[in-house]
Amino acid sequence: MKTKIKAFFRRILNWIKRNKIKSSIAFLLLIGYYFCLPRTLFYEPYSTVIESKEGELLGAKIARDGQWRFPASDSVPDKFKKCIVYFEDQYYYKHPGFNPVAMFNAIRQNQKAGKVVRGGSTLTQQVIRLSRKGKSRTYFEKIIEIVLSTRLELRHSKDKILELYAGHAPFGGNVVGLEMASWRYFGVQSHQLSWAETATLAVLPNAPSLIYPGKNQEKLRLKRDALLLKLQKEGFIDQQT
């Protein structure tokens, strides 16, 4: 075994010696890839929150940028994990940050419709997009998202990436993040939400400006019910839930 490993590295060294220019370019690309992702993705200010020892919300002050954005929780409730993955990115735990099949299908559907009807972005890509506010949604920007998404997957675990998503996703109006949305729409902490309430929040970031509690209620209900039906078929909930 050791002999095979030595032979493998010997071949690599010989290739580097024979291809100094190519190996130098490859080395520079690797260095660039390693440092391409900012160490801190989000710099947005948070709301000031006052809670009781029992976790009840006593008061809150809006963030400096006019958004209701509560500090992210250390963990994402299991219900929300299942809801958001099955609604937004069913292959989340299998892909390296992007899903080429979903992207190809999205491009084909968009070309057929003559407009953008499907994004094809993974949850990891959505985290990158949320951190790069104001960037135009072009194919070049999509390539940048893919590169940064793969780098994010190498830096953080899947659960950590879900924490970033839950903490910064838009939930309609000036409500940002799962914790704020839980208090705003249902008056409880995120881990206290029912399956129906969690499913309602999971479908909001997909179109926060068009559908949220108090606006387009029927569309919101249909999206929520479709997600609950999918979860039921997967065996996570039953009809009584």
Rank of each mutant, 00 (worst) to 15 (best):
P96D: 02
E197Y: 00
T241Y: 09
L57P: 03
L204F: 02
E145S: 03
E163G: 07
Y86I: 04
S73R: 11
R151N: 10
E234P: 05
K142M: 13
R39F: 13
L29Y: 07
A181D: 01
T124H: 05
M180H: 06
R18F: 11
K112C: 03
V188G: 08
L222Y: 11
R64V: 15
S190R: 11
Y139M: 15
G55A: 07
V176F: 01
F104L: 13
Q217E: 14
W15P: 02
Q67M: 14
Q217F: 11
Y93L: 14
Q239I: 05
Y43T: 15
L164E: 01
V116W: 09
M1E: 11
F27D: 04
A72Q: 12
V203E: 01
D225C: 12
L154M: 13
V49S: 02
T122Y: 04
K53P: 05
G66P: 06
V101T: 15
K4F: 11
R132G: 02
K133I: 14
K79Q: 06
K160P: 04
I62L: 07
T122P: 03
W183M: 05
R64H: 13
R137A: 13
P100L: 05
N14E: 13
I146G: 00
R184I: 08
Q240P: 00
K81V: 13
K135W: 15
R155T: 12
N14L: 14
L130N: 11
T241N: 15
L130T: 06
Q111W: 09
